[in-house]
Design a protein around this nucleic acid. Structure first.
Length: 153
DNA sequence: GCCAACGTTGGC
DNA sequence: GCCAACGTTGGC
């Protein structure tokens, strides 16, 4: 069992949007970064996800989700009408993958980025590294638990 | 809206 | 393979 942090712009797709989907399940499509894609390809069903809201008024971790499928081809890469269309992607050799994720919980207390930065235990988090832009990244068990604690209290 | 950091592209 | 130009990300 591994843990991950996944970023989404809440104006586009928030944790509440995921919650509202049938069964609370949705495909994490549109990832167009190789490093993020490679992380998704290593995900296992049941892995825990910190759902992070980025590029918004108060960025931070909104709650929890979980992985419910291993990586599969992201169909939007083949769709010329999609904003995620990739003319270089081939049906017989898909370039981009996604995993399906399920809503788990909304934190009673949203955990803002500013609070994360104050935690000595989280100093080494990849999210907090200068210039970090990855939208999918691993978090340690200790980091996952520490952030869960902040969200609950 | 600004801008620094980063990834990708493409000419050579 | 180098690297400048460009586009994107994302905090502020």
């Amino acid at each position: 069992m591994n843990y991950w942090l996944m970023k989404s712009e809440p104006d586009v797709f928030s944790l509440a949007h995921l919650q509202q989907r049938p069964g609370g399940v949705g495909p994490w499509d549109g990832v167009r970064n190789y490093q993020a894609r490679n992380f998704m390809r290593t995900m296992q069903v049941g892995d825990g996800i910190l759902f992070y809201h980025s590029n918004c008024e108060v960025p931070g971790v909104a709650g929890l989700a979980e992985v419910v499928s291993v990586a599969r081809p992201d169909e939007t890469q083949f769709d010329p009408k999609s904003e995620f269309y990739d003319p270089g992607a081939k049906r017989d050799n898909p370039r981009w993958s996604l995993v399906d994720v399920r809503y788990v919980a909304t934190f009673p207390n949203f955990v803002p980025l500013t609070l994360l930065r104050e935690q000595a235990a989280l100093k080494k988090m990849r999210l907090l590294a200068p210039g970090n832009r990855l939208s999918v990244m691993p978090v340690t068990t200790a980091e996952y638990k520490a952030i869960g604690k902040l969200g609950r209290k």
